[in-house]
Design a protein around this nucleic acid. Structure first.
Lengths: 183, 183
DNA sequence: CGTGTCATGTAATCAGTTACATGATTCA
DNA sequence: TGAATCATGTAACTGATTACATGACACG
């Protein structure tokens, strides 16, 4: 949230919208987290709040990062990133794939592949719609770095899907062969 | 846990050890989760517990999957995998990289790259130590699929690190150039 | 006239981690 | 003698999600 507030002072609502079109692929927050965070930032003197009145609309509570807030952010940015606990439900299901028919595993991988293709498309959209629009903004090279991570990752996953589908289909054919022999 | 119990009846302690050498890269559980889960599985009739007495050692509580348990597992395996919330702290820090010196970002990526290289090495170890030892086990093709995901992913991430380091170092040189001009 | 957007917040719940408790055995 | 392994469990806490509450305006 502090990072986002460096771009410009914003409301909780704005923060949510902005995260959804920028860092959504690797970081998500929801209102039930954002609003208490903003409250806390203000209490700790890391951000200041001021309210904007609007006609026929609820008030907007705009938060701006303070000098102290920016320092706290920079301190956090310099600390090594903690590695998140990785959990991949698809891989877990495939790991125990022998328990279910081959067609089930194939379908899992196929739909996962489709999702990846859609994700790749959103990256291209982000590239053209968001990043290029802000150019020349000093943030852009860093945004592109994060985006390129997604591209590399997603392309690799699609390659793995193709490889896996081939392997599973080969197993399927061998099963069919055995079945005809047993007839 | 049910998946693991299809391999053989096991204690909570065994389950922890086994997950650590097999699915650790994409799924982690700790004792505070495992023991209550086993208790619950037994209550729901999905697993049965029997205790083994040992000399000079605590008793072992061995859980075995029941017929009902296997059916519940197969049902779960056939359901489409939910996509996990993705969170990548490193990417978040790089996204706001403009706030800190270039050297900080470079160091983040460099140490991340090293970690990936170590991970790749553990994959090769898993391949030779675990998977090949169990061959010909009907599970092995599925275990290899999960392992290959890791390989594809990690190789892609290393490629991204290299690309990113090049880009960041270029920025660094341009900064140095500007600094000498301003002298 | 119903759906979506704008806008802020809290309460309840669920999931996951850390810390605590216990104690014998083995290995360096 | 101290650290690691074997072995099972609970309590407390932190973090995150879902559900709830409210209400006007714009668009088709």
């Amino acid at each position: 949230m502090m990072g986002m507030l460096t771009l410009q002072p914003m409301s909780g609502y704005d923060l949510k919208k902005l995260t959804e079109i920028s860092i959504d692929n690797f970081w998500q927050e929801n209102y039930a987290q954002i609003y208490p965070i903003l409250k806390q930032l203000a209490e700790e003197g890391l951000a200041v709040k001021h309210t904007e009145k609007q006609e026929g609309r609820p008030e907007r509570s705009i938060y701006a990062l303070t000098e102290m807030g920016q320092q706290a952010l920079q301190k956090w940015l310099a600390e090594p990133a903690e590695d998140q606990v990785e959990r991949h439900e698809l891989l877990l299901k495939l790991f125990f794939g022998v328990q279910v028919p081959l067609s089930v595993c194939i379908e899992h991988v196929r739909s996962y592949r489709e999702k990846q293709v859609r994700t790749l498309e959103t990256y291209e959209q982000t590239e053209s719609a968001v990043i290029k629009r802000y150019e020349p903004n000093t943030n852009v090279p860093y945004w592109r770095i994060a985006l390129n991570y997604g591209r590399h990752h997603t392309r690799a996953v699609i390659a793995w899907c193709d490889e896996t589908l081939l392997a599973l289909k080969e197993c399927e054919e061998q099963e069919a062969l055995l079945a005809t022999k047993n007839d």
